[in-house]
Design a protein around this nucleic acid. Structure first.
Length: 694
DNA sequence: TCCCCTCGAGTTCA
DNA sequence: CTCGAGGGGA
């Protein structure tokens, strides 16, 4: 059915269609997000969405009728219980080039204090493109299975995993009292094909790729459906274990195999980087004939003792890395370049593309990063461009194909005024005269785009976490003029009661949802100090720096008072991890006259909670430690990593700020200095005892 | 002064 | 998830 262009509709017809579309999209959203069973194709869904948005653009009054917005991205499915992983399921670092593999090996050796040419064995195994799962075995019996989730908490899919032939109910032979077996649930190509044929016959939607099919099949309410999907499993690592049956990765794989768990046959022990890369090439060659999807090769240090010594950097283990196959690419036409204005005024160019499938996903937008990026790649509107999904997720424009460029294509002129408020958009210079890569709107307080983005940030999950005040609601409230700054959120109810406006008459805000919104707002009146500081959106103050400030000052008043004095600037600057630039940003924020007013208004409504004193969770927390002499059980890097894990700060030299010196044999001047200053000196063994490691 | 790591900010899609 | 830049150790 061909629909009339939106600009030919009467407002009445538009309203009716908008309402119908809203209901339809909401139903699809529910099917997709909550039931894991999309009822239409992505393309059809996108068409509905586009039409819906076009209606709103043409008839802005429809924005008040937003029954849809409240539901999008709403609470995840409740049908699976949550499972907390006792050992987190982390992701891996990625490398793409051979060169980086050599660097990885060198980095590992350096951390372990090994010579460059010292022997060190790794295991190389295919990286299966499925979904990670943790299978808990107690006394050899499968008792629970959980998805990865966010790495810390997943979903309980025990009933479904029990239907997998690859997941034995009982392990063969001797098994530890408790063992989390981890691996990948995946679907083979032939099963994927059969499944989609069946879906098509039943008039059901097709799965985009085997991974989605595996994910959709595992997260079924009815385990009988999972059983019919013929999912497979490879074991390749473990989480919590009462005891380990082996001391190496290869040993563990052998144990898995003996216990009746499938292990990928292409896992191979390699003596050095050259062998690892050779095995990568071999796997790459076999990729097409494996019968299942893989997206790279994983290298792990074989020795588990060494794995433990290496430990984890912030997000990923130091002892493993994924060598990814080159990202899949596609070509499409760049129709337009749109400029978005961020909370800090940053102008970000986004490419609007003709829809194209890349790696099983339809891509229509891709970030172009910044002005220089567009110029460097000489990307022009109308160009045929190559698109890839970086790290498998974020689409990016790789290059423009010059031989397909339309003759009239002009170099892209990046706007020098803000598209939202018309203010000049400038690139800040640092002292050396180098221009910042980002061009920023200077409209600051008068720019509506920045104001809205700041409000969204204020309400967001990691900040004030006000449920019911999502992006759409904030845009609406701002547009309607009832929320202009953060304090306005907290006076909504009062003003509503006075009859300044009636939310319940705005479609999409029934009495219940308005009541819930007000409850959520009330609940946000006593935020944790760190969240409150983060919510203010001070430049350069993200989650971590906000926490550092909160911990140091303990109360908002203390922070604010300090920011207004010169000594305060120095004090902020002295906080570990906070330097001159960040301290300056904090002080600038509090000294801005408009911010003072906004803060006063906000603090009349909200009481950020003082922080409890920094928890002394370990005996060395908060202490400054110096390691000296030759350590026999730890390398310097390890010692440092350990100390930081226990909340201590590591310094390179002994001063009166030092709390503890850990001295090995041969300690010289540092030890003497420590004794001179009367600082406590302990041995390496004492360190292990002190930190409760033995 | 250089280099490495961490942090902030911005973004996509399903 | 990635890029750029700040912070801090060498």
């Amino acid at each position: 059915m061909k629909k009339k262009p939106v600009d030919q509709l009467s407002p009445r017809v538009a309203r009716a269609e908008h309402a119908l579309l809203g209901a339809e999209i909401a139903a699809h959203d529910r099917a997709y997000y909550q039931d894991d069973a999309p009822t239409i194709s992505d393309a059809d869904y996108d068409a509905l969405r586009r039409r819906y948005n076009a209606l709103e653009e043409q008839f802005p009054e429809l924005l008040t009728a937003h029954s849809l917005s409240a539901k999008v991205g709403a609470a995840p499915s409740q049908k699976f219980a949550k499972v907390r992983h006792s050992v987190a399921m982390l992701s891996l670092g990625n490398v793409f080039a051979d060169e980086e593999v050599y660097e990885f090996v060198a980095r590992v050796k350096r951390f372990l204090g090994l010579a460059e040419d010292a022997p060190l064995a790794f295991v190389a195994e295919p990286k299966i493109d499925g979904l990670s799962c943790s299978l808990r075995y107690e006394r050899g019996a499968l008792v629970q299975a959980a998805t990865r989730g966010d790495g810390f908490e997943g979903e309980d899919v025990t009933a479904n995993v029990r239907t997998l032939a690859d997941a034995p109910k009982h392990l063969r032979g001797d098994a530890p009292a408790a063992l989390d077996v981890r691996g990948e649930v995946y679907m083979r190509h032939e099963d994927f094909k059969t499944l989609n044929l069946r879906q098509a016959e039943a008039g059901k939607p097709l799965y985009a790729n085997p991974r989605n099919a595996a994910a959709g099949s595992l997260r079924q309410l009815d385990a009988a459906i999972t059983a019919s999907r013929n999912l497979h499993f490879f074991a390749y690592t473990w989480g919590e274990a009462s005891e380990l049956p082996a001391q190496t990765q290869t040993g563990m794989l052998a144990f898995f195999e003996k216990a009746g768990l499938p292990v990928n046959p292409l896992a191979k022990r390699c003596a050095n980087a050259d062998e690892m890369i050779a095995h990568y090439r071999l796997i790459e060659q076999k990729r097409a004939t494996l019968g299942y999807d893989i997206d790279g090769v994983v290298y792990k240090v074989d020795d588990i003792g060494l794995q433990n010594r290496l430990g984890f950097a912030s997000r990923a283990p130091r002892w493993a890395v994924a060598h990814k196959f080159p990202a899949e690419r596609a070509t499409t036409i760049l129709r337009d370049i749109e400029i978005q204005v961020g909370r800090t005024g940053a102008l970000t160019p986004v490419a609007r593309l003709d829809p194209v499938t890349v790696g099983g996903v339809v891509v229509q937008n891709a970030t172009l990063h910044n002005e220089d990026e567009i110029a460097r790649k000489d990307i022009r509107i109308g160009d045929t461009v190559v698109v890839q999904r970086a790290g498998d997720v974020i689409p990016q424009v790789v290059e423009a194909l010059l031989d397909k460029r339309p003759a009239n294509a002009m170099p892209y002129a990046f706007p020098h005024i803000c598209p939202a408020c018309g203010s000049a958009a400038l690139r800040e210079m640092d002292e050396s005269g180098a221009a910042d890569v980002v061009r920023r709107c200077t409209g600051g307080l008068i720019c509506p785009a920045q104001a809205v983005e700041r409000l969204k940030h204020f309400c967001s999950r990691l900040a004030m976490d006000i449920e019911g005040l999502g992006d759409r609601q904030i845009e609406l409230f701002y547009k309607q003029g009832i929320v202009k700054n953060p304090a306005d959120i907290f006076t909504l109810q009062k003003r509503s009661a006075r009859g300044a406006f009636d939310l319940t008459r705005w479609e999409g805000f029934g009495e219940t949802s308005v009541r819930n919104l007000f409850v959520a707002i009330e609940a946000a009146r006593k935020p944790a100090l760190n969240r409150f500081i983060y919510a203010l959106g001070v430049r350069r103050i993200g989650e971590t720096n906000a926490r550092r400030l909160a911990r140091h000052f303990g109360s908002f008043e203390a922070l604010r008072a300090a920011a207004l004095t010169d000594d305060g600037l120095a004090e902020i600057n002295a906080i570990d991890g906070v330097g001159a630039v960040v301290a300056e940003a904090v002080v600038d924020f509090f000294r801005e006259a408009h911010n003072e007013t906004v803060l006063d208004e906000l603090l009349a409504e909200v009481a950020p909670q003082p922080m409890e004193a920094v928890a002394a969770s370990s005996p060395v927390a908060g202490k400054t430690v110096v390691f000296t002499g030759s350590l026999e059980r730890l390398t310097r890097d390890e010692a440092k990593a350990q100390a930081e894990r226990f909340g201590a700060k590591v310094a390179g030299s002994v001063s009166k700020k030092t709390d503890l010196v850990v001295a090995g044999p041969g300690a010289g001047s540092k030890l003497a200095k420590a004794e001179e200053l009367g600082i406590e000196v302990i041995s390496e063994d004492d360190w292990f005892k002190r930190t409760g490691q033995e």
